[in-house]
Write a protein that binds this DNA or RNA. Structure first.
Lengths: 137, 137
DNA sequence: CAGGATCCGTTTCGATACTG
DNA sequence: CAGTATCGAAACGGATCCTG
């Protein structure tokens, strides 16, 4: 069931497939929840991501797995629970997300906690390193 | 004709209204063309942005003007021509766009020229300053 | 019960044709 | 050149169902 759009917006473009990730609000929200809020399960995303419908969430998660941005694995203790984690490729999205949030915080009203924003802006690299360490094996 | 969505995905979100900009592929393409390719007119965007339909382009331009990310002004010599320029708020999107492109270049096949990518990655600040200088009064 | 798949009414998008 | 009008296609929201 490969999506076969008639449009050719992928070609000749220095953003390319990245547009399927960045150019979709739901995908961005999932990435924010995963990378910044530390959420990891279907339920958590569904509760957090601005009332995302379950079919939409399932679709975006599937795409993120296909693109090797996240991985899924079942909890060995409780087989019902699936946990999602970012890959190295996914973690490398952090600078993009952080620049987005920094811009949004500067120009729009956001709900971002002030202390997080301060650290995020004054030393983004340290902030990124901290987030990365949460996902180390 | 304000869009009045039932969803509340704007609230309680450290991305907020920014999602209307970043979470839309066409908007991203227009911003890329404006900021990086130096395009400035409706026609140029239409020719460049992966076959964007004229109504979509008109819609996205209108939104970008509403959000004060770009301004439009008619050419005093030729009243038919409308030229678009980024505002300060719009120029501050450069770090986001650049991080996106750097990521895309690393993980996907892109059509970005190698020499541009090199400068963009080795000294992004200088690259940004250079782009900015193109839009100085 | 968690994670999804499926169905369906509604909204939004986008390709094409056309206009000031 | 810079947009609008139309209309079919796709995405979305919400409910429900399924499977382990």
């Amino acid at each position: 069931m490969k999506r076969k759009s008639r449009t050719a917006w992928r070609s000749d473009c220095p953003l390319n497939i990245a547009l399927e990730i960045f150019g979709d609000r739901w995908t961005l929200l999932v990435l924010r929840d995963l990378l910044l809020k530390g959420l990891a399960t279907f339920r958590e995303f569904q509760a957090s991501s601005e009332r995302i419908a379950s079919n939409i969430l399932a679709d975006r998660i599937k795409k993120l797995v296909e693109y090797h941005i996240i991985t899924s694995q079942r909890n060995p203790d409780d087989a019902r629970i699936v946990t999602y984690r970012p890959t190295a490729k996914g973690l490398d999205l952090l600078p993009v997300i952080i620049e987005m949030i920094a811009w949004a915080d500067r120009y729009e009203q956001t709900a971002a906690p002030a202390n997080v924003m301060r650290r995020l802006k004054t030393s983004p690299d340290a902030f990124i390193a901290e987030v990365r360490s949460r996902f180390e094996k």
